[in-house]
Write a protein that binds this DNA or RNA. Sequence first.
DNA 1: GCGTAGCAATCATCTGACGATTAGGGGAAT
DNA 2: ATTCCCCTAATCGTCAGATGATTGCTACGC
Lengths: 223, 223
Amino acid sequence: MSRTDRVVDSITRMILDGELAAGDRLPVEAELAEHLEVSRGSLREGVRALAVLGVLDVRQGDGTYVSSLAPERLLGPVGLLVELQGAGHARDTHAVRRLLEGEAAAAAARRSDDDAASAAREALARASAALTDGDHEAFLDADMAFHGALARWSGNPVLTALLDALAGRTTRHRRWRGQAVPDADARAHAWHTQILDAVARGNQDEARTLTQAHLLETERELP
Amino acid sequence: MSRTDRVVDSITRMILDGELAAGDRLPVEAELAEHLEVSRGSLREGVRALAVLGVLDVRQGDGTYVSSLAPERLLGPVGLLVELQGAGHARDTHAVRRLLEGEAAAAAARRSDDDAASAAREALARASAALTDGDHEAFLDADMAFHGALARWSGNPVLTALLDALAGRTTRHRRWRGQAVPDADARAHAWHTQILDAVARGNQDEARTLTQAHLLETERELP
DNA sequence: GCGTAGCAATCATCTGACGATTAGGGGAAT
DNA sequence: ATTCCCCTAATCGTCAGATGATTGCTACGC
């Protein structure tokens, strides 16, 4: 096991053991390096790796801190990993997203959340305007915002963060390919309207089925 | 943006653009550092971070390679992140796991997979033996193996890797707490038997419901 | 009380050197 | 000809020291 791995292990263990909590400040590099019996260079490699993972926040001139450890912070890098995943598993990734987002919609249907609800309505209005203007880019932004609001409406931050990570891949492709299928945006908008209606009415099964059908249709228009 | 971030960005972009594919070898550190206009130290910090994420494989004396980029490789670090997640989100994490594993069982029920099926039966047999011997540790091992086989049976590698990451947290607690609730292992084993039966008979709904109920009961015995 | 300039602490980066490990080739024995 | 072993070159792993960049805090002046 390399020195760097030892650094990563030691710091994660300190957090797991409760020795370090979210927001806590770590000792300065020189001190921590001496404590772990590694050079400052090796220490930095480990600390930097944990920073990329979202576990640590390193602020020049200030110090190194444990991050909030919140799902949206920790699951951020997962989005990158999903994108890097070989194209061979795109279908499997989409299937997982479909499952989770369908359940998120169902969960939202049995819940009230004024913030998320108004965010979803606002996103839908923006999408409608973008559709009228024929602005594909703006529509995609509003589209993503709608899906994000729907996820938040589920009330489960872990689910929300996971969906955010999984959504990146799909949207990146749609943005790059432009509007390959005519009227795809209009059809997506129609789905969104139906989904919001079902969720607002509290109809779980309908919300889930509509969401899954919508995502399935969208996938079919991708490579 | 720091030099290290630039390194991480550049390498991921090379992979996304197809300039680097899974298994490809990267230029040697000195050369790559010069190309990216950073010192070797900064380059190493970025490379190490990507190695921790499972994107790169660094082999001393040989070279640095792009990993297989397979789901089980990339989603490995996610397991660590799930464990680090504040205790406040344990319930949300469990809810996501319940959803995914229920669907994995349903997917398995509509699929045949001799390898996964025999692995599940073998795990169940080991669990039964451990139960007779009163060996809690061995039971937990067999328990995890059963859930892993069930996930693989779904035929979706992304789902399998994700469940593996999510399962860690639960099991770690169960291992540490010992058998807090009497007969918990025996009841879990009974659930497993029913789940395997439902999957083998191809009954999706039953497989999903039983799996979710089993996980819900298990969660209730945790903090 | 408040704003500001300076200072000290901390991370960011670079350079050069040497140790550890591996892959692969060359040579010897069979 | 084949097999085995050793050796070397290539590559990553680690360390030490020095300097730059940024930030938070404090003491000072108003």
